[in-house]
Simulated scan of single mutants.
Amino acid sequence: MSSRASRKEQIRVARELRARQQRRRRTRLVTAVAVGVLLAAGLTGYAVYAAQRVGDDFAVPASATSDRAGLRVGDGPVTVEIYLDFLCPACRAFEAEAGTTIERLVDEGRITLVYHPVAILDRYSSNAYSSRSAAGAGCAADAGKLAGYVTALYADQPAEGGPGHSDERIADLAAGAGIPREPFAQCLREGRYADWVTQVTHAMGEQRVTGTPTVVVDGERLARPSAASLTAAVEAV
C-alpha cells in the first residue's frame, strides 16, 4: 500500500472513531436528561402523595367546610369568606369596623360566613401566637362560639414583636366570650387543631391569597374590605 493510501486509511479510521465517540456522548446526554426528568417527576409525585397523606392525618373541627380549610357560621345563600390572622392589626381594624355588619348578615340568614384562621405572622411573636390562637378558633367553633371568640381576641390583641398571649390568657378570653373554659383550655393545650391550622394556611397559598384580611364574596375578592363594600357585594349577589 502506498504512503498516500495509508494516510487516507488513517484519516478514515480517525473520522470513524470521532463519530463513534460523538454518538456515545449524545447517548449519555439523552440518558442523563431522561433520568433527570423521571426523577423530577417522581419527586413531584411523591410530594403530592406526601401532602395527601398529611392531609388525612389531622383533627378537624366539626364545623369545618368540606375542603377542611375553613369554619362555617350560618347558612345563608351568599358565601362570605374571611382570611384572618389573630395577630394582624389590619384584621383587628376590619373586625372593629365591620364586625357588627357581619353578625347582622349572619343573623338575618343572608350569608354563610367562612372563617379561614391562618398563621402567617408567627415570626412577629416569640411564642407562635398566630398558630395557637388560630388553633383556638377550632376549639371555639366546636363550642358554637366562633364569632364571639374572634371578637374577644381582637378586642385584646397583643402587640407585634413581643410575646403573644399565653394559652391561659387565650382561655380566659374565650371564657369571657361564653365558651366553657376547661374544655376549651384542654383543646388548646393539647394542640388538637395545630395541624389543621397548618393545612388552612397551606390552602391559603393554594388560593393565591397573600395577606390578611382578605374578604371574598361569592368568589370575588373585595379590593378594600369594609362594612360598606361587604354589604354592597352581598346585595349585588
Results as ranks from 00 to 15, higher is better:
residue 159 A to D: 14
residue 205 G to V: 01
residue 208 R to Y: 12
residue 128 A to Y: 14
residue 210 T to N: 14
residue 173 L to W: 05
residue 193 Y to F: 15
residue 134 A to M: 10
residue 161 G to T: 11
residue 193 Y to S: 03
residue 177 A to L: 01
residue 114 V to F: 06
residue 149 Y to I: 04
residue 172 D to F: 01
residue 168 E to N: 13
residue 189 R to E: 14
residue 148 G to Q: 04
residue 204 M to I: 00
residue 113 L to I: 00
residue 211 G to H: 12
residue 179 I to R: 05
residue 201 T to C: 06
residue 175 A to M: 09
residue 136 G to W: 02
residue 199 Q to E: 11
residue 172 D to M: 04
residue 193 Y to P: 09
residue 145 K to Q: 14
residue 127 N to D: 14
residue 146 L to Y: 04
residue 145 K to T: 11
residue 187 C to I: 11
residue 145 K to L: 07
residue 126 S to M: 09
residue 214 T to L: 06
residue 142 D to W: 05
residue 139 C to A: 02
residue 162 G to E: 15
residue 206 E to Q: 15
residue 152 A to N: 06
residue 120 I to Y: 09
residue 112 T to Y: 07
residue 181 R to F: 11
residue 178 G to C: 07
residue 176 G to T: 12
residue 124 Y to K: 08
residue 136 G to H: 08
residue 160 E to C: 03
residue 164 G to K: 05
residue 199 Q to D: 14
residue 130 S to H: 03
residue 171 A to L: 10
residue 136 G to I: 01
residue 197 V to P: 07
residue 158 P to A: 10
residue 160 E to G: 04
residue 215 V to K: 02
residue 137 A to W: 03
residue 189 R to Q: 14
residue 115 Y to K: 04
residue 154 Y to T: 13
residue 192 R to G: 09
residue 158 P to D: 10
residue 163 P to L: 05
residue 151 T to G: 08
residue 208 R to N: 15
residue 110 R to D: 12
residue 120 I to T: 13
residue 162 G to P: 06
residue 127 N to R: 05
residue 213 P to D: 06
residue 134 A to F: 08
residue 167 D to S: 15
residue 130 S to A: 04
residue 115 Y to I: 02
residue 155 A to H: 09
residue 123 R to W: 08
residue 160 E to I: 09
residue 116 H to L: 01
residue 210 T to H: 12
residue 159 A to N: 13
residue 192 R to C: 09
residue 118 V to M: 02
residue 157 Q to M: 14
residue 165 H to M: 11
residue 113 L to Y: 01
residue 204 M to T: 00
